[in-house]
Every structure is written in C-alpha cells, then in structure tokens.
Amino acid sequence: MPVPLLVELIFVLVIFAVVQAYAPERTLLAGTVLGAGAAALLAVNYQALLSLEFWVGLIGFVAILSALLVVIHPNPMVSILFLIVNLFCIALFYLILQAQFLAAIQIIIYAGAIMVLFVFVVMLLNLKAEVGLRLTAAPQRWGAILLGTAFVALLFHAIRGRLDEAYIEAGMFDSAFGAARGLGGLLFSKYLFAFEAASLLLIAAMIGAVVLAKRKVR
C-alpha cells in the first residue's frame, strides 16, 4: 500500500508541473484541483500514513527534488531556500533513525547558522548580474557532465548489494540511542582524540581567517 501512494502523489505533482509549464495562468485552478486530489488519495489510503516506508519515501523524494532545484533554479536566493529544505529533510532522516540530538544540531548549525550566513552574503551581492546566469562554456559543461556521471557511478558502486544493510525498521534502535547523553559519552571517551583534533582544526581555520582579513586593514 505505501509505495503506490507515494507514486500517486508524485504523479499528481508531475501533472501540476506540466500545467505550470504549459498554462501558467491556470496555476491556481490546477493547484486547487490537484491538491484536492492529493488530499482524497491520502484520505483513502490513510493507513499508509502510519507506515515508515511512506514517510521515508516522501522525505527522500522532497530531499532529491529540493537538491535538484538548488542546482537548477536560476535565482541564488531561491537555491539557498531549497538547500534549507534539503537540510531539513536530512534532519528528518536523523529523526527517523532515532538520532534526535543530531537532528536538532543539524537544524541549529546547518539550517540555522550556516545558511543564514549564505543568505547574508547573497543579500550583500548585487544579484542582477547573477540571476539567470547559465553555464555556456563548453569545456566546463562537458567536464561537469563527465565528473557528475563518474560520481553517480561511484555512488551506485558503493550502494550496490548493500541495500539490505541500509534498510531500517521502526524500533531498530531504542530512543536513548541518539540522545545527547549517549552521543556526548562517545565523543568524550571513545572518539576523544578525533573530537579534539577536529576542534583544533576549526580553531586554526578561524585564526587563519582573522589573520587574512586583518592583514589588509593594516
């Protein structure tokens, strides 16, 4: 039951995208009708809403869609917004894996702090020259296609034959697994050296940034 529902919902979304592309003036009507259709599907298949597969599929779909839009969208600010959506999806995945602490940290650090700096920088830029900028230089485009394909092949190679290992089920981990206590305990005992080394690296990077920024002032 759950997987067909997801497929149906994606189908609804694709119809919406097609309408948007060919008849932009009918967007509101199409959105209303298709939204009602999606709501009806969910109401009929409400059992699927309780299954983990449906939610994993839905979040995964949104994650991939938003990641694509980050790259495709011509406006940098909108790209940033979709990147935030993507980070939220990953936080939700952490939640599903019972890593609640990591999920909260993901949102605070990445979606909350780092992306705000991105927004800040884009606000300071003059976007008029950047909006709608397309990659036209042929060597770059071919290089991107080549390297992208190679990366996808690498990913497939890594995942192949291991999908069963990656499968998760409700209740596979207990709720204390991802709490702050467990994570903190591990960080300050088993992985103490790596943790301290990483903090040292960050300090070094920070001092470097300050030195580079201040050199011009003097």
């Binding site: 935030i84 609640q100 602490f101 909260a104 940290i105 949102i107 605070i108 979606a111 909350g112 702090a113 705000v116 927004v119 800040f120 606000m123 709720s175 709490a179 702050a180």
Partner: peptide
C-alpha cells in the same frame, strides 16, 4: 527530550523571515 534544542532551532529559523 531535546526541548531546549528544539527551541534554539526554531528561534534560529525566525531569522529567515526577517532576512
């Protein structure tokens, strides 16, 4: 369980509305 962190995360989201 992570109530305080949830609050911090959501208050961090408020920045986007303003910016």
């Amino acid at each position: 369980d992570n109530g305080v962190l949830v609050i911090l995360a959501l208050s961090a989201m408020g920045v986007y509305g303003v910016a």
